[in-house]
Design a protein around this nucleic acid. Structure first.
Length: 592
RNA sequence: GGGGGCGUAGCUCAAUUGGUUAGAGCACCGGACUGUCGAUCCGGAGGUUGCGGGUUCGAUUCCCGUCGCCCUCGCCA
């Protein structure tokens, strides 16, 4: 086999006169009857090869070359004649005039070539992922992902962290997301669960005295995927002892600052902080997108002065009326605003009252109901002619926040109000510790049950648990939650109290988390940490909104791998070994 | 589990109100061509219109079911 001396992105006019051997895939071929041109592709780029009829043996072989054949070729690097250079290629100043060609492997005609893959349907790309991944764009993403994890490991090494692996075969914990289960052969009828995160292990590593732990680790949650969510995903997971919230946040800020500088050459300024309460009030979201304004304004007092029953009814029921001003939104048609009204219903709204601002007063929509407050409303919102005003109305303040919070993001995108190239970082802090679950009639952790309550609110735990804030913090970038963490409870007494509040009785707590409660008794240092979604971080750096783009072998929305056709049925013998039987009405034909 | 969109040649798409032999570009095959770089020119082959059923004289088109892919609500401590 010819050994390669240069890769396909390497040769320049200064190499002219030397002999080079290159290897790669045939990206395209152009046969002119006499001279044959091959664009050869490898990981690093494209180089043009030329075969002249004078070198008969090589030329005859080259005549048979087709897309995606794998070859190696040796020849003289020659400068291209004046006007023949190809400015589109980094190597466009030269070509390799080949006298030796070795066909390392012929390729069948591929369903699509890497050149075309950008236009091919995603299902095709996933089925033939090895062809899709030959695209320079995909290789660039994988390279970026590699660089990000490399920077992470270097950074945490410098900061004194140890990377420690935690088990994939874990005990199932009923809290949180649905577990992926793995049947145990040695314990018939028992199951492992794949970790939703290494949460408990990393806390126990703190009890063990590791002090600073980090891991880039796969996590598994058996929930339905979304564009930015996959059942199997990767977290940067870290935990630190003898620290407070600021220590963790500063450590993470230092990391993202280095990553953004080295990968994107962008300086991350000190990240601003906002309380959960303020985020919900001003933006209707715990992960506000600060790249545009359209803040939520409370107009309950004005709305209560109208005769509009939609407003007054909700207010009387303890609800709220808030409004957003959509700059230039008056251009939206009736059909479009009706569409929005329909769209907000999925978030619990009855509809979406709107009006437009014309000639210094309100018009269309619900204008006739709110004319008495028109002047005050326009002043309060700072509205101008040509603006659209949307009202969020509900008996529940949480619904008002959700509706307007989702609406402002949708409108900002649709009306192209987001200036590209912005990186708006934010820490959201002071989350509530718990929230009341109306359906289940109980308190649920907002973060997880090991999150420490804030010291000032400790006294409220019994009197007004819903008002207790926690030492939890989320890192938000451009309206997307990149990661989150908290200071943990290190006192077994406080932990017990929280379990009680959450309705986890002593017996259940002992059964589920006994090992953690035990560990906390034997000298647990104060500790806290955070986890960042690596896939999402790489998505931001690569400018994609599709998580499948940043995962080499992703799964579809159905949890299927189109290339390997996982999941699949298994032999009865395998089930027998595991003491499992598949219910026939659920099983595909082959399983029974 | 719910809502929406899509499925036609290897790939990306078209096909009038339900009406002749389902078309185009790229890819593929054959030929021509000694400087192209999305090569060009000539010719050719290629279809279970996702699958199953129904309505109809006639279905890519309408209806029902089903499968697959995408977006989304629920879900995601």
């Amino acid at each position: 086999m010819l050994k390669r001396t240069h890769h396909c992105g390497q040769l320049r006019d200064t190499d002219a006169g030397s002999t080079a051997t290159v290897a790669g895939w045939v990206n395209s071929y152009r046969d002119h009857g006499g001279v044959i041109f091959i664009d050869l592709r490898d990981r690093e780029g494209l180089t043009q090869l030329v075969f002249h009829p004078e070198n008969k043996e090589a030329h005859d072989l080259a005549d048979k070359l087709r897309n995606e054949d794998v070859i190696a070729a040796t020849g003289k690097v020659v400068p291209r004649a004046e006007g023949m250079a190809n400015p589109k290629l980094a190597t466009g100043a030269i070509e390799v005039d080949c006298d030796t060609l070795e066909i390392l492997n012929k390729a069948e005609t591929p369903p699509f070539t890497p050149d075309e893959a950008g236009k091919v349907g995603e299902a095709q790309r996933l089925k033939y992922r090895y062809l899709d991944l030959r695209r320079p764009a995909m290789q660039k993403i994988l390279r970026t992902r590699h660089r990000v994890t490399k920077i992470m490991r270097d950074y945490f090494d410098e900061e004194g962290f140890y990377e420690v692996e935690t088990p994939f075969l874990c005990r199932s914990t009923p809290e949180g997301a649905r577990d992926f289960l793995v049947p145990s052969r040695l314990h018939a009828g028992s199951f492992y669960a794949l970790p939703q995160s290494p949460q408990l292990f990393k806390q126990i590593l703190m009890v063990a005295g590791l002090e600073k732990y980090v891991q880039i680790v796969r996590c598994f949650r058996d929930e339905d995927p979304r564009a930015d969510r996959q059942a199997e995903f990767t977290q940067l997971d870290l935990e630190m002892s003898f620290v407070d919230q600021d220590d963790v946040m500063n450590t993470v800020e230092g990391l993202v600052r280095r990553i953004w500088k080295q990968v994107a050459d962008i300086d991350v300024p000190p990240v601003q902080r906002m309380t959960y309460a303020e985020a919900m009030d001003r933006f209707g979201s715990d992960r506000p997108d600060l790249r545009f304004s359209m803040e939520l304004i409370d107009v309950t007092d004005l709305a209560s002065q109208t005769e509009f029953k939609v407003f007054t009814g909700s207010i009387a029921a303890g609800g709220q009326v808030k409004a957003i001003r959509v700059p230039g939104g008056a251009t939206l048609t009736r059909k479009q605003t009706d569409g929005l009204a329909e769209w907000v219903k999925q978030f619990g709204a009855g509809g979406l009252p709107i009006c437009k601002v014309e000639n210094g007063t309100v018009a269309t929509g619900v204008a006739k109901f709110i004319e008495p407050i028109a002047g005050a409303l326009i002043e309060k919102l700072g509205a101008d002619d040509g603006d659209l005003i949307c009202f969020g109305v509900s008996d529940k303040k949480s619904v008002v926040a959700r509706v307007l919070g989702e609406l402002r993001v949708k409108l900002a995108h649709e009306l192209k109000m987001i200036e590209p190239g912005q990186w708006k970082w934010l820490w959201v802090v002071d989350f509530p510790l718990i929230e009341y679950n109306d359906e289940q009639k109980r308190w649920d952790s907002l973060h997880h049950p090991f999150t420490a309550p804030s010291d000032e609110d400790l006294a409220l735990l019994e009197s007004d648990p819903g008002a207790v804030r926690s030492k939890a913090y989320d890192l938000v970038l451009n309206g997307s939650e990149l990661g989150g963490g908290s200071i943990r409870i290190h006192s077994p007494q406080v932990q017990q109290k929280i379990f009680n509040l959450l309705g986890i009785d002593d017996e259940a707590a002992k059964a589920k988390f006994g090992f953690l409660l035990d560990a906390l008794k034997f000298g647990a240092p104060p500790h806290g940490g955070l986890a960042i979604g690596l896939d999402r971080m790489v998505m931001h750096l690569c400018g994609t909104t599709n998580i499948r783009d940043v995962i080499a072998f992703p799964k579809t929305q159905n949890g299927a791998d189109l290339m390997t056709e996982a999941p699949s049925t298994v032999d009865l013998a395998q089930l027998d070994e595991l003491s499992l039987r598949v219910q026939t009405h659920h099983a595909p034909d082959k399983a029974v």
